[in-house]
Write a protein that binds this DNA or RNA. Structure first.
Length: 601
RNA sequence: GCCUCUGUAGCUCAGCGGACAGAGCACCGGUCUUCUAAACCGAUGGUCGCAGGUUCGAGUCCUGCCAGGGGCGCCA
């Protein structure tokens, strides 16, 4: 009976697993997981012995207690009381008795109402300082996504103008997500998808054409629905300078293609200024050229999800009246409501031109066919409905959309303090009205590092007011510099140490104090932080973590001196080894956020 | 109307169902003859929007309200 619930081979495999973790030397260990596995096997052993009744053991994570005096992790045995029909304290004691030996643990304490408080062995921490100092960033490599392929599709702005502040947040979050996936062991592709087949690009081409004609002195007024931005005047001026009058009779397609080319040059340059590069650019037009969109439509039709009508099948009398008032001929509809959408959607308009949804579905089918284990898409919440429709389309094609996950970003605005009105005022960012802040503007006013940090350090589903003036004005109290300064301070120590010919070659780490070990404890949480960021799509976690770790570092730097007349040489060597590890850690964190790690500030 | 996000210190925000709810800024008081003070130390500051519910235990999960933002095209 007992064996059915707790077969011994399971216990053995759990212990094997724990041992494998213990024997890894240079890769980042997630000690909490090893501990959880060990606790589970202790419970199984207690069940085996009849000290506990058989029951399926729930996964209860260990977590760091709020008070550090209570140890590094706490396991609340209260959660087992009902299942085990014993008091939490009693269960906790049983676990501690049966727990396999773990080399990273120092002491275990049972505390009411039923916590097991676990403390890391100081020796273990010292060994990690050595390992980090020796291995550098390799120490932190996780194997969560080993052998798996991930794609992050982000920015994906249509090439109709410069990168705006909204795209910037998308870019920063997407790139950080890609870096975190890489840190977790995935092979990552960064992709940029853009719609260049639709109406917006036609209008862009025509807008540029008119601006060009204006350059030639013609009276060519820009209709209200055209792109009003000054930037097209610049492009037109360049065209006129390069081609003179020769494009006077050229078609709007020529101008559209020219505009696309110029805009992409700008976009890539702007992104690369904040350390972002895509591996692949995928455009909507290619789906027309390959006839993929028609193949998708036929497959949907074959599955019985397509029909011709002037209105959708579930429309009520009001909706029918509304559509008939527009006088449409029949269009081609996708029965998306069958798959949970609130209404059916048009795939091919009555004029025979596909909506953007059809290529969008074709694009995602192609993405799935490319076989990624994870395909993350970063989108603004204004695409929420659209993403649902695409998922309906994927299911209607008989495919599983599971690998696709979307990070939805809430709105970001650039704001400035309005002195006269005494309140914040949004800087407008509509491309067609021509009044907006661009990524280039943001970088020029602050810095690439400041833009990256501030865009990252907020939950994707929170709105973000990017206070332009404050990021500049308060730069001295900025988390950006606070974190970078931790790295800079380490670099300063090594510059000076080299000068004085001090080296940490035969450092004795037993000379390190409590605060250096406290820093190391905190630093070892990086693995959990990355895992959580990857699993839950919360790239902002790494930004908060970096700031917290810098907050542990700076007081230590203040107290724990290396190159001071009163510090004995042996102690100085040990501390130097510690700062070597600390520098590697901050270098790694800054790189995860795509920020620079300056040697001086 | 439907969908969605947000509400925690004066401000900006952290907070994995666990023990006395945290940080930065602002304000107040200290610290540079020692690796750059973009730093450090100390003090003040809370009906976790409201009301129920689940639980041994809720800022955290569920329901309903209240307040604010965003989205709901044969546009892309």
């Amino acid at each position: 009976m007992l064996r059915q619930v707790a077969p011994t081979y399971k216990q053995a495999s759990l212990l094997d697993c724990a041992c494998r973790h213990l024997h890894r030397k240079t890769a980042l260990q997630q000690l909490n997981k090893t501990l959880e596995v060990a606790i589970e096997s202790a419970l199984l052993a207690a069940q085996e012995n009849g000290e506990l009744p058989p029951f399926a053991i729930p996964r209860i994570p260990v977590s760091p207690p709020k008070r550090s005096a209570q140890g590094d992790w706490a396991y609340p045995a209260m959660g087992l009381a009902r299942l085990a029909k014993k008091s939490p304290l009693e269960i906790a004691r049983l676990i501690v008795e049966r727990l396999p030996a773990l080399n990273f643990l120092d002491k275990l304490e049972v505390a009411p109402p039923g916590f097991i408080n676990c403390t890391i062995a100081e020796d273990y921490l010292r060994r990690q300082i050595d390992a980090i100092a020796a291995a550098g960033v390799d120490y932190f490599q996780l194997e969560l996504g080993k052998g798996k392929r991930a794609q992050v599709e982000f920015v994906s702005a249509n090439p109709s103008g410069p990168i705006t502040i909204g795209h910037t947040r998308n870019a920063v979050v997407g790139d950080a997500m890609a870096r975190l996936l890489e840190a977790a062991g995935y092979a990552v592709q960064r992709e940029y998808y853009y719609n260049n087949a639709g109406n917006q690009m036609i209008i862009l081409g025509k807008s540029l054409q008119l601006r060009y004609l204006q350059q030639l002195g013609e009276d060519a007024p820009l209709p209200a629905d055209h792109y009003q931005g000054e930037y097209l005047v610049e492009v037109a001026r360049d065209l006129a300078a390069e081609h003179g009058q020769s494009l006077r009779g050229a078609s709007w397609q020529v101008f559209r293609d020219a505009a696309e080319q110029v805009m992409f040059g700008w976009i890539k340059r702007s992104l690369s200024a904040i350390n972002i590069q895509h591996d692949a650019f995928y455009n909507e037009t290619s789906l027309f050229e390959s006839e993929e969109i028609w193949s998708v439509l036929e497959d949907l039709r074959a599955n019985g999800h397509i029909y011709q009508s002037t209105h959708w099948e579930g429309a009520d009398a009001d909706e029918i009246a509304e559509t008939s008032a527009k006088g449409y001929e029949p269009a081609t509809w996708f029965r998306s409501a069958t798959f949970g959408d609130e209404k059916d959607r048009v795939m091919v308009k009555s004029d025979g031109v596909p909506t953007y949804t059809l290529p969008d579905i074709a694009y995602h089918r192609d993405k799935l066919r490319r076989g990624f284990d994870v395909a993350v898409i970063v989108l603004g919440t204004d695409h929420f409905s659209q993403a649902q429709v695409v998922k309906c389309g994927i299911r209607a094609l008989g495919l599983d959309p599971a690998p696709i996950d979307v990070i939805f970003l809430q709105m970001v605005r650039a704001v400035r303090w309005d002195e006269e009105r005494g309140e914040y005022e949004a800087v407008k960012q509509s491309k067609r009205s021509g009044d907006f802040d661009t990524l280039d503007d943001l970088v020029a006013m602050t810095s690439a590092d400041a833009v990256r940090y501030h865009m990252l350090a907020r939950s994707p589903n929170s709105q973000l007011d990017f206070d332009v003036d404050q990021v500049v004005k308060q730069s001295n109290d900025n988390p950006v510099y606070y974190i970078q300064n931790a790295y800079v301070r380490c670099a300063g120590i090594f510059r000076e140490a080299a000068e004085r010919r001090l080296c940490d070659a035969d450092a004795d780490l037993s000379l390190l104090g409590e605060s250096e070990l406290r820093f190391t404890r905190k630093a070892l949480e990086i693995g959990n932080c990355i895992e959580q960021a990857v699993r839950n799509y919360e790239p902002q976690k790494i930004a908060f973590f970096a700031q917290e770790l810098a907050g542990v570092f700076h007081p230590i730097y203040d107290q724990v001196r290396v190159l001071h007349s009163e510090v004995p040489v042996e102690t100085a060597k040990a501390r130097l080894r510690f700062y070597r590890a600390a520098q590697a850690i901050f270098g790694y964190l800054l790189d995860l956020m795509g920020m620079s790690a300056p040697e001086r500030m």
